[in-house]
Amino acid sequence: MTEKDTVDTRWSEMVARVKTERDETAFAELFAHFAPRVKAFLMKSGADPALAEECAQDVMATLWHKAHLFDPERASVATWVFTIARNRRIDALRKNRRPEPEDLTWGPEHEPEQDEAIALQQESEKLGTALAALPEKQRMLIQRAYFGDMSHSEIAEETGLPLGTIKSRIRLALDRLRHEMK
């Protein structure tokens, strides 16, 4: 491992291999790590074990099919998997439609800038560390919010989350993307 390698960078390499080579070994590694977390996440959101198992399989199948849509300059694999699981939950548990923002995508030929992608993955890890270091009470509240257990009016205005640097990273990626789209 070089200094620049992070766990998150490794996951995004696995997704790239699923995308380009339909690599089942890489997919099996992703599955072993993420599927049990997705299943637990869905159960904490109120799904029974059978439904959570089924949805977790669906989420992992979506990861396979949509690997080409993963953008390592704007999200870590964990974040991307989280958004797929969240959408599956809305669909399965709330039976609601979810309005999605207009997609911004690089052109078909775009190869991710390695440095940008690595920087974003590092920011994601830092955010994870910062979250783990929050006082117990605050961390529990944040978890509850993400398990779908708190409405927007119950979420306090001052979330106290250290989002500054990851936000600037994502903002930079968006600026580059907008520049390229012109």
Binding site: F41, A75, W80, F82, L127, A132, Q143, L161, I170
Partner: peptide
């Protein structure tokens, strides 16, 4: 996207 990254971190910690 940064609030979604928090979701990623929560998932990772689950």
């Amino acid at each position: 996207a940064s609030f979604e990254a928090v979701g990623g971190a929560v998932l990772e910690e689950t």
